[in-house]
């Protein structure tokens, strides 16, 4: 894990939203942190290069674009885990995928622009892997706010 200093942590904690919409937004954001725009850009480049940040930019809520977003799971036999992960990850509709400790041991999110894209993606995964996909579409969203302060 890359070492983070106090400024890195302040950047991560203060820039998870409300990035300015103006001519020179990095300079404006940097001023609030007491540094220069160039220094902020340099830090962001390093945080992205070292994968402390997965990206810097807009976080899109795909359902509001008319798309669909479904959590799904597979029960993958141990000996086939890497092979199945490659097959699943190969689909562009798979936004993220996690190994979890449970009989259902592969949990991924399918995100598609068209509502009927989910069923097609599930069919492709079932065909490619020979395993049944368990889909858990959300019925209600109670809360979503993925903002975590830097602890490292």
């Amino acid at each position: 894990m890359p070492e983070l200093d106090a400024l890195d942590r302040r950047i991560i904690d203060n820039l998870q939203g409300d990035f300015p919409l103006c001519d020179e937004p990095y300079a404006v954001a940097a001023r609030q942190l007491g540094i220069s725009g160039e220094e902020l850009l340099e830090r962001l480049r390093r945080l992205l290069d070292t994968r402390v940040l997965t990206r810097f930019g807009p976080l899109v809520h795909i359902e509001r674009m008319g798309g669909a977003f479904v959590l799904a799971a597979l029960q993958v036999p141990d000996g086939r885990y890497d092979e199945v992960a490659d097959l699943v990850n190969a689909l562009p509709e798979v936004a993220h995928n996690y190994r979890r400790e449970h009989a259902l041991n592969m949990w991924f999110v399918l995100a598609t622009e068209a509502q009927d894209g989910i069923a097609a993606a599930i069919a492709r995964i079932e065909e490619a892997t020979g395993l049944p996909v368990h889909a858990f579409p959300k019925e209600r969203e109670y809360f979503v706010e993925m903002k975590l302060a830097a602890r490292a």
């Binding site: 894990m1 890359p2 983070l4 942590r9 950047i11 991560i12 820039l15 998870q16 939203g17 409300d18 990035f19 919409l21 103006c22 962001l44 945080l47 070292t50 994968r51 402390v52 940040l53 997965t54 990206r55 810097f56 930019g57 807009p58 976080l59 899109v60 809520h61 509001r64 674009m65 979503v144 975590l148 302060a149 830097a150 602890r151 490292a152």
Partner: peptide, 27 residues
């Protein structure tokens, strides 16, 4: 800028900023 603002207000964009890898920041 105007379109990003409108997309934020419509909720199509949840927010604009840093998206951390939570493992790398200690979680």
């Amino acid at each position: 800028i105007a379109r990003l603002q409108a997309l934020l207000e419509a909720g199509v964009i949840r927010r604009i900023g840093a998206v951390p890898n939570h493992y790398a920041i200690g979680w």
